[in-house]
Structure formats: C-alpha cells, structure tokens
Design a protein around this nucleic acid. Structure first.
Ligand SMILES: [Mn+2]
Ligand SMILES: [Mn+2]
Ligand SMILES: [Mn+2]
Ligand SMILES: [Mn+2]
Lengths: 225, 225
DNA sequence: CTATAAACTTAGCCCCATCTAATTTCGCTC
DNA sequence: GAGCGAAATTAGATGGGGCTAAGTTTATAG
C-alpha cells in the first residue's frame, strides 16, 4: 500500500513541520533523512501526486489531512514499540530507537493495539514523547521550555529527552537523568555549558547547551513560573 | 544487507528442498512464491552469485552452507513470533502467520532471543513446527507419519498442522484439534474422507484426505508401532 | 531417433528509490 | 534592478524486483 520509505518521509515531515512550524524545505529534509536533495524532490512529487502532501516547487511541503494520520500512526507504532521493548523485553532505552524505527512499518495496528493494552495504554514513550492514541489524538504540545531556558537555582522536572543518540541516552541515564527526574540547575556558563544536580544526589552533570536546548522541562507544580 | 524478499526466497528453498528432498525447480518455486518463472530465474541467479545457492540452469537450486543458516534464522524468527503472538499478545493461531511472515525479516536476533527467553525457549511453534535454537540447531525430522497413514481404530497424537490456511486452522481448533491432541481415526472412505474423534469427546471431525496427508502424527508411547 | 509439449531462460520493458551532474530559480546585496 | 551564491529541480544512470513475449532446452512419446 505505502512503502516503508514513504512512511518515513511522512513521519519526517511531521517532525520537521512541528519543529519549524512552516513548510518543510528540501534541504532540511535531505539532511534529516540522510539522502541527497534530488531524492527528496522526486519522492515529494510522488507523495504530492498521492495527495499526502501539498508541494509547491521551491517552497517546500506540508502534510495534508490525508498525510497527517499516516504520520501519526507510524509515530504511535514507534513510541509504543520503544515502550514495549524497554518494559517487556529488557531493552535499554539507548538501544530501542533503531529497532523501533524498522518495526514501526511492519507491525499491524492490531499488534500496536495489543501491546498498548498490555502496557496499560501509556501516554508517553521512554524518552518522554507523547504516544498518539488509537484514534490518533496527540496530547497537547508540551511546555516548550527547555533546560537551556532555566536560571541557576531553578528546579524543574525533566519532561522529554532526544532519542536519536544512544551515547547521550546512556550518559543521561548513567547520571540519573530520565523523564520525570527533578533537577536543579547549578551553573550555566557563557561558553555554553549547563550543569545540573539531579534530585537529591550530590552528583554534578554537565551538558553542552545544544543538548540542554532540546531537553524539555516542566515547571514544578506549586512553584511560581 | 539481504533484502526481505531474498530472505523469503531462501526460506522457500529450505521448505521445498525439505519436502521433495531434491533440487528445487523453477516452476515449484514460482508457484510457491506466487511470482512468474522469469522472476525466479533472475532472483536465483543473484542468489547464486552471492553464493547462497548452487544453481544449475534447467536443473534447479540447492541451498549452500552459506544459505542454510540464513534460512534457518528466518524460520526461527517466524516460529518464535508465532508463538509469542499467540501466547503473549492474544492472537488466535489462525491469524499469526501473516504477521510473523512480515516481521520475521525485521526483528533483530536480539529481539528473537529476548522473546525466546520470555517464552522459556519453546521447542515448537503453535502449529507444532520445530523452532531452531539460537545456534540454529533444528530438532530431528519429525516422524513423517500423517493422519492419512493411519488405520481405522488407531489412536495417535497430533504433531503438526499446516499453518498457511486460516480457515483450516479455525476449523481445527473449533473442533478441538491442535498439536498434542490425541485423536482416534473412526472412518476412512474410498473417496478421500478421514473422520476423527478427538480425545474423550464424542464429536466427529471430518477432513479431506489431502488435508489429512499434511497433518503429521506421533504414535502414542507404549502402543506398538 | 525424431517430434512436440512442457519447463526454463533470455530479452526487453516497468516501477521504485537512489545517485551525480547540469540547469534553473530564489533571495539578497549593492 | 542587476548580479551572484545558495537552494532546488531536471536529466540521466544504477540496481532491485517484477512482468510479458519470445526463444531454448529438456523430457517424453511414438
Ligand atoms: Mn522508520
Ligand atoms: Mn522515543
Ligand atoms: Mn516473509
Ligand atoms: Mn507456524
């Protein structure tokens, strides 16, 4: 019906659209998918023909109402799989991404629904990303605040960490940082280093600001904004 | 590395070779894979180039020592998945085949090993077919006796049923016939009908002889051969 | 031993997803 | 508003997997 590759393109558009909030440009796309630009152009034309995206040459693409649910379904599969792998099959959270990235295209929705049920229909994946429901509702956009936005002394709860880099994930979990962890910002430097103290530990965890900028946080309830 | 389709070809050769015990012919192959003969010829040449099969034009193919373990790995994946789906994800044994037939190519061996572990390293799949071990040992060939070989009055244990036809599987399980069930042969007719009485029930289950011929059986222990 | 039908392979085409090289368009600066 | 570099598209090739139609080879019958 729809190739695994096309599904990956649609998923990518969804992500990139979400991040930049505008049409996704060929170059952005090519970099994200790790292919050359002409490959993107040609695929995008096929997707437009099948009405999954609006494509305006030289202007980029947007998902159509036909394309969105397809992207969401794949994302649902991906995140459910990640959750299942970590909870039921003893995978480390650093390892799940690649396995899920392949399997997401090959499991049936029946399979997805069954594992969701087994897990008690979880709301988020191991990295804190929201899991679309079976009828493809996505939870409201997260706060948008990141570790990089915090002042020294501030205490926040980790909401979501990026899931593509296994090394980063291993580093984070080794230092006690996972979604729901509460951390205090102990230092920020002019040269782009953020240092944290995870809840109740004495450990200091340093992160480059680029990383801090993609780890989202929740303000602690009861505290002022 | 190796496409899902190539894997399916290798798996098919393994099956067909096992059944007929000789070189697998292009026509047999084409029918089994549901493709035209030229497609088989061309794929077989690619497999031969990569040394997975010995191919002699006009004479058919045999798996090489390189090809056998690949086929076995896929078969292991397939049967473990079937087992996992029925035992852990509430699939009916009639539904598992298609899901397993896709996923077998996309799960890692890590995934396979984990589900095997969860299941306690089962020896057979839900249809009674042996599951190759992690180091790809296959249990000795089954008895070879089938329901069609039995005399009226004989009692045997069902060993293995064909897993491709959901309707047949549904029919069998509805009538209490699964691997390990003990049945008595109550009637065989000249026009190819075999009637069974599953263990302890009063029900009569009729099967066409073609079907009886592919359901394998074990002689009950203690009984004479 | 020859004729013929069945089985198999070859030739030549198609669609998919990708690439490099060449060309066009965009968007900005002066 | 002309010129220029960056971004995007078009052109043309490649490899995977499939198909139909046309030729070969093999097996079998007479
Ligand atoms: Mn993917
Ligand atoms: Mn994730
Ligand atoms: Mn398969
Ligand atoms: Mn089976």
């Amino acid at each position: 019906m729809l190739s695994a590759i096309m599904e990956d393109y649609l998923k990518a558009i969804y992500y990139l659209q979400d991040e930049t909030d505008e049409r996704v440009r060929t170059s952005t796309f090519a970099e994200h998918m790790d292919v050359e630009q002409p490959s993107v152009t040609s695929m995008v034309k096929k997707l437009a023909e099948r009405d999954f995206v609006h494509y305006e040459p030289y202007k980029g693409v947007v998902l159509t109402d036909t394309g969105i649910p397809i992207a969401l379904e794949i994302i649902r599969h991906h995140r459910l799989l990640e959750r299942y792998l970590t909870e039921r099959l003893e995978y480390d959270w650093a390892e799940v991404h690649d396995e899920a990235d392949r399997l997401e295209h090959h499991i049936s929705s029946q399979f997805a629904d069954r594992i969701a049920e087994q897990l008690g229909n979880p709301a988020v994946d191991p990295h804190g990303d929201p899991i679309p429901t079976a009828d493809l509702d996505v939870s409201p956009p997260q706060s948008g605040e990141t570790l990089a936005d915090q002042q020294v002394g501030e205490k926040v709860r980790i909401e979501r960490v990026p899931d593509h880099d296994p090394d980063l994930l291993r580093y984070l979990s080794e230092h006690g940082i996972t979604p729901t962890t509460v951390v205090e910002i102990v230092e920020t430097t002019s040269f782009g280093m953020v240092t944290l103290d995870p809840d109740g530990t004495d450990e200091r965890v340093a992160l480059p600001e680029e990383v801090a900028r993609i780890i989202t946080t929740q303000t602690l309830t009861g505290a002022s904004n």
